[in-house]
Simulated scan of single mutants.
Amino acid sequence: MYHELAKRGLSIERQKPLPVFWDGIKLDIGFRADLIVEEKVILEIKSIQQITDVHTKQVLTYFKI
């Protein structure tokens, strides 16, 4: 995925650690985004047979962060 997006000239960051702020405390590595495209889109890459509620909640948490 990285290669194909980079081939098209898009700015991409892989496995970028992102901080989480909670109750006035900064946690330096709250999670790692699989791919961030053009500093606007987070791609979370999964290799699963079926999407479950846990996956949906994970993505919603990323949006909040």
Rank of each mutant, 00 (worst) to 15 (best):
M1C: 06
Y2H: 07
H3T: 12
H3N: 08
H3C: 09
E4T: 13
E4V: 13
E4F: 12
L5Q: 01
L5R: 00
A6T: 12
A6Y: 11
K7W: 08
K7Q: 11
R8L: 09
G9E: 03
G9P: 02
G9F: 01
G9I: 02
L10T: 06
L10A: 08
L10Y: 14
L10S: 07
L10D: 09
L10V: 06
S11G: 04
S11E: 10
S11Y: 11
S11K: 12
S11A: 13
I12K: 01
I12E: 03
I12G: 01
E13A: 10
E13D: 11
E13H: 11
E13N: 10
R14L: 13
R14Q: 14
R14E: 15
Q15P: 04
K16H: 08
K16D: 02
K16Q: 10
K16I: 04
K16A: 06
P17D: 04
P17W: 05
P17F: 05
L18F: 02
L18C: 02
L18P: 00
P19N: 08
P19M: 06
V20N: 01
V20R: 01
V20K: 00
V20C: 05
F21K: 14
F21C: 09
W22Q: 04
W22T: 04
W22A: 07
W22Y: 07
D23E: 15
D23H: 15
D23M: 14
D23G: 15
G24K: 09
G24H: 13
I25H: 02
I25M: 03
I25W: 02
K26P: 11
K26W: 07
K26F: 08
L27G: 14
L27H: 15
D28G: 14
D28M: 14
I29N: 14
G30M: 10
F31W: 02
F31S: 02
F31K: 00
F31P: 00
R32K: 15
R32Q: 14
A33T: 02
D34E: 03
D34P: 00
L35F: 15
I36H: 10
I36W: 08
I36N: 10
V37Q: 00
V37T: 01
V37D: 00
V37H: 00
E38W: 05
E39R: 06
E39N: 15
E39L: 04
K40A: 15
I42F: 14
I42N: 15
I42C: 15
L43Y: 12
E44F: 07
E44G: 05
E44N: 06
K46E: 00
K46T: 01
Q49P: 01
Q49E: 11
Q49C: 05
Q49A: 11
Q50A: 06
Q50F: 03
I51M: 02
I51L: 03
I51W: 05
I51Y: 01
T52E: 10
D53W: 09
D53F: 05
V54S: 10
V54H: 07
V54M: 10
H55S: 01
T56P: 00
T56V: 15
T56Q: 09
K57M: 12
K57A: 15
K57L: 13
Q58W: 03
Q58R: 03
V59L: 08
V59S: 02
V59D: 02
L60S: 09
L60K: 07
T61S: 05
T61G: 10
T61F: 07
T61L: 04
Y62N: 08
Y62D: 12
Y62L: 08
F63R: 06
F63T: 06
I65F: 09
I65D: 05
I65V: 11
